[in-house]
């Protein structure tokens, strides 16, 4: 198994996919951090908060995470479909038994790469925040670590979802279309269709919503409690909802609840990919 994981690392770092997808993560994270911080510095906000320093960095890290996890799921999916496209999957399966061992090795290796992605995201969005905001926009260190840690979790889980999905569909183009189509189009439509129905709570359980809740349900309550201090119990639900809609999560939903839901999705995709891989004819 060690050998298989080492093999996966070699496949990763001798080809370009990992940095081709990490590059936009770095850039977008930086821009999200910078732009978000600048937003917190506008006159309107400063006036509303009576000049109080806001830990906006926590929110923008959340925003940036939820925007770049798409690259994590693409990474995971293309990691698997790439082997089918390049036909290296034949040799891969000829050198490992059972096939599931290869998938296991990929899960381990790509978890590490996803942690790297999460780290780059946390650092770049914070760097953007520093540039736009200065050092005191991030709250306390434990707060920063918590939001950053939630971001790492989200990034890792998305990568695992991607690996499972890639193992299920095996075709790169199909995988990319499914991922982008779902995240950019379908889930938004599904959520808005659900809002006016008695089952609107279901939206919290959709994959995109659940994953952004992992970070958003940490950062938003943290931000509000920082800003409101003793007045926190009197902060209106609307204020929460406004922030949640921008930075992920939903009012009153615990971050670990989102985490559990999304772990469930990751498990389903990985299990599906596992089964499909074991049965598939490699032609």
């Amino acid at each position: 198994m060690n050998g298989l994981v080492k093999a996966e690392f070699r496949k990763i770092f001798t080809t370009h996919l990992w940095w081709a997808l990490l590059l936009p993560v770095a850039v977008l994270s930086f821009l999200a951090g910078w732009g978000g911080a600048a937003l917190g510095q506008t006159d309107l906000v400063l006036e509303m908060t009576r000049g109080q320093k806001l830990p906006t960095g926590l929110l923008t890290m959340s925003l940036s995470t939820n925007n770049v996890t798409v690259f994590a799921v693409l990474l995971g999916a293309l990691a698997v479909t790439g082997e089918y496209r390049q036909k290296t999957v034949t040799t891969t399966f000829l050198t490992a038994n059972p096939r599931g061992a290869v998938l296991g090795a990929k899960l381990i290796a790509y978890t590490n790469v996803a942690l790297l992605y999460g780290l780059v995201n946390a650092l770049c969005s914070s760097l953007g925040g520093l540039v736009g905001l200065g050092a005191d926009g991030f709250g306390e260190l434990p707060q920063w670590l918590m939001v950053g840690g939630a971001g790492l979790l989200s990034m890792v889980l998305w990568t695992l979802v991607g690996i499972g999905l890639g193992a299920l569909v095996t075709n790169s183009v199909a995988a990319v279309l499914i991922i982008l189509g779902y995240l950019l189009v379908f889930e938004g439509m599904a959520s808005s269709a659900l809002t006016q129905t008695p089952v609107s709570w279901l939206t919290d359980y959709l994959p995109g919503e659940a994953s952004s809740g992992i970070v958003g349900n940490v950062s938003v309550p943290m931000f509000i409690s920082d800003v409101a201090g003793a007045r926190e119990p009197f902060v209106s639900k609307t204020a929460f909802q406004l922030l949640h809609s921008a930075f992920g999560g939903s009012y009153g939903f615990p971050w670990w609840g989102s985490l559990l839901v999304f772990v469930g999705y990751a498990a389903v995709f990985v299990a599906g990919g596992w089964l499909a891989t074991a049965k598939r004819d490699i032609l």
């Binding site: 060690n2 050998g3 298989l4 080492k6 093999a7 070699r10 496949k11 001798t14 080809t15 370009h16 790439g82 390049q86 036909k87 290296t88 999957v89 034949t90 040799t91 891969t92 000829l94 050198t95 490992a96």
Partner: peptide, 28 residues
């Protein structure tokens, strides 16, 4: 058992050596 099935199973960006070293790793 070693097999030569088609001459396609290479990542075009890898060199012959890096290709092979993926599998020396897998085979310990």
């Amino acid at each position: 058992v070693g097999a030569v099935l088609d001459s396609q199973g290479f990542h075009s960006g890898q060199t012959a050596r890096t290709h092979l070293r993926c599998y020396t790793a897998a085979l310990n």
